[in-house]
Each structure stands twice: as structure tokens, then as C-alpha cells.
């Protein structure tokens, strides 16, 4: 599964980032505690969160996540968007709640 499929399925708005098709996603970490994200040792990761600070993008970069999905229709801070552009990390936004977004992504992953 790639980010393009997620974007289509969830009707996400793309706020920053490079190729969505090239961003292969196999694992999802849905979390609002960045330290808990840093524990995750998975490749091809998508970070799903309702936090909007630039630390979200920073954390995604540190663990090498392939994208960040902001839930609850929240608008990330401008600095977060800028950092995502700078680090070339796709930053998506959905109106769905974290749970609803995860359910949809779970379907795409045939879970």
C-alpha cells in the first residue's frame, strides 16, 4: 500500500511532501505521544496523530517514517508544514478522527 491509496480512500488534503505513490506503507503508528513513537522499530511507517506541532514532523524524520497523517481536521502549524517540505516528508490531513482513519487504513491493509 502506498500513501496515494490512503489519500484517495480517506479523502486527505496534501499539505506537504513528495511522491505519495513512492511512499510505501506497511505499518501505522497512531499516537499523540512522540516518545511512544520513538519506541516503534518498524520500516515503511505512517504516523497518524492529532498533534499539530513541528515536533510531529521532527519525530517522523527521526524514526524514518514515510508520512504523517493529521486527524480530526486539524490544521498543522505553519512551521510543521515548512519542516515537512524541507525534510521532504509527506504531510496529509483528514477530517476523520484518529480511530476512523485507522479503521480505513486497516481496511486498505486487509487487516
Amino acid at each position: 500500500m502506498n500513501l496515494q491509496q490512503i489519500q484517495t480512500q480517506l479523502g486527505c488534503e496534501v499539505l506537504a511532501g513528495g511522491s505519495l505513490q513512492g511512499a510505501n506503507i506497511e505499518h501505522v503508528c497512531a499516537c499523540d505521544m512522540m516518545s511512544d513513537v520513538l519506541v516503534v522499530e518498524k520500516d515503511n511507517l505512517l504516523l497518524v496523530t492529532s498533534l499539530t506541532t513541528e515536533q510531529v514532523v521532527r519525530t517522523a524524520d527521526i524514526v524514518g517514517a514515510h508520512g504523517v497523517l493529521i486527524t480530526n481536521g486539524k490544521q498543522p502549524l505553519e512551521k510543521a508544514v515548512q519542516l515537512a517540505k524541507q525534510l521532504n516528508i509527506p504531510l496529509l490531513r483528514t477530517r476523520l478522527s484518529t480511530f476512523e482513519a485507522c479503521v480505513q487504513i486497516g481496511k486498505l491493509l486487509n487487516l
Binding site: 512522540m34 516518545s35 515536533q55
Partner: peptide
Amino acid sequence: IRSLGFGAGMGLPNIKR
């Protein structure tokens, strides 16, 4: 601090890990 996504109590344990 928690509202910023930190203070999960995983900092030092994470570093150790």
C-alpha cells in the same frame, strides 16, 4: 508539555533501550 506530545515517561528508558 504533554499537550506538545512529550512527557510520556519514555525519554530515559528509550535512550537506554
